[in-house]
Simulated scan of single mutants.
Amino acid sequence: MIKKTSSLTILTVSLMSGAAMQPAGAQDYGNMLKGLMQGRSGDVLFDTIRSITEVSSGQIASGTQVPQDAQGKVILYRTSWCGYCKKAASYMQQKNIPFVERDIEANKSYQAEMKQLGGKGGVPFIVFGSKTLNGFSESAIDQNYAAFKSTQGGSGSASPAPDAGMGGYRSVPAESRLQSGDALVGKIGGIDVYRQSSKGSPKLLTLGRGEEVIYMGDEHDGLYRVTTSRGEGWVDKLLVKKSG
């Protein structure tokens, strides 16, 4: 017990010292320390620090299947507090790169999925087909996406792969033309948004008629994962449509 307290004290001082030496906004030390206090493993914490300070590339093991809902898209594994994850998402939206997001803290199955694809806990972890990128770099994203796009035959989508059994998530039908980041609106008023991907889970909020939410690229059991004014939730896909 004494050893753990001592290590935490040293880490706290180190983080505070490092923060003073870094440019404003360079690293979110407060959130890292908060994560440690909440019980995140040391391995995940230190992998996260390395992913922020270093950019590295990798390769998915031969025979590993990419999740069905990500066919033809980039996958961004992230956490809600990761500043570089937000930068990566913003940059890919700016460059019109089709991608899906996976919050590895909000959904534990994404942690297993990320590990299967070669992730070691650090975020952002970005998957471009068979290639991976750990960390954020605009030029690295451009290069990896260009290489990934060339493998898609210019169609922007790949042929469906067999179910890899990772969480049961599947792709949204092409005819819906939904992309991560699209605004959705309720077809009627009073639509419930759930906290988890189940209609039996607690309700996050109720949408008013015309109230918009942002589609996050996932579908599970007839529900879309969306971002609302109160955070992320899940909504019945039959009750919403693309805004506009």
Rank of each mutant, 00 (worst) to 15 (best):
Y215S: 04
G25N: 12
K86C: 00
M32G: 01
Y169T: 08
D182A: 11
G233S: 07
M216T: 05
Q152H: 08
Y77K: 02
V127I: 12
G118H: 05
I141T: 04
D69W: 07
G168K: 07
Q65V: 12
G210Q: 12
S7K: 14
Y110P: 00
I52P: 00
G168R: 09
D192L: 11
V240W: 04
F46D: 00
S157F: 15
S150E: 15
T227G: 11
G121R: 00
S150G: 05
I214M: 13
Q38W: 08
Y224N: 04
D182L: 10
S56G: 09
D47S: 09
G222P: 07
E232F: 05
G35V: 00
M32V: 08
T64Y: 07
Y110M: 09
R170H: 12
Y169D: 06
G119N: 03
I104D: 00
L238V: 08
S229I: 10
S6M: 14
T5H: 15
K3H: 14
R40P: 00
T64L: 09
S80M: 09
M32Y: 08
A61N: 10
R40W: 13
L15T: 01
K87W: 03
F148R: 03
G121P: 00
T53M: 07
E219D: 08
S150F: 04
I52Y: 02
V235T: 05
G210K: 11
G189I: 07
E54P: 00
S150P: 04
G233K: 01
V66R: 05
G153E: 09
L238G: 10
L117T: 00
K87T: 01
K242H: 11
L117S: 01
S130Y: 04
K86W: 04
T12K: 12
V172R: 08
L207A: 05
G153N: 09
L36C: 07
E54G: 04
E113N: 11
G39A: 07
Y110V: 00
G58F: 04
G121E: 00
G181Y: 06
M16E: 13
G129K: 01
S56P: 05
M32W: 06
G217T: 03
L184H: 03
T48W: 01
Q38R: 14
Y224E: 07
G208M: 11
P160A: 15
A147I: 11
N107V: 13
G156F: 12
G244V: 12
I52F: 03
T48I: 02
V193Q: 06
V13P: 01
Q59W: 07
P160K: 10
E219I: 10
G129P: 02
A88K: 03
A24E: 14
P162C: 04
A106H: 04
R78K: 14
L184T: 04
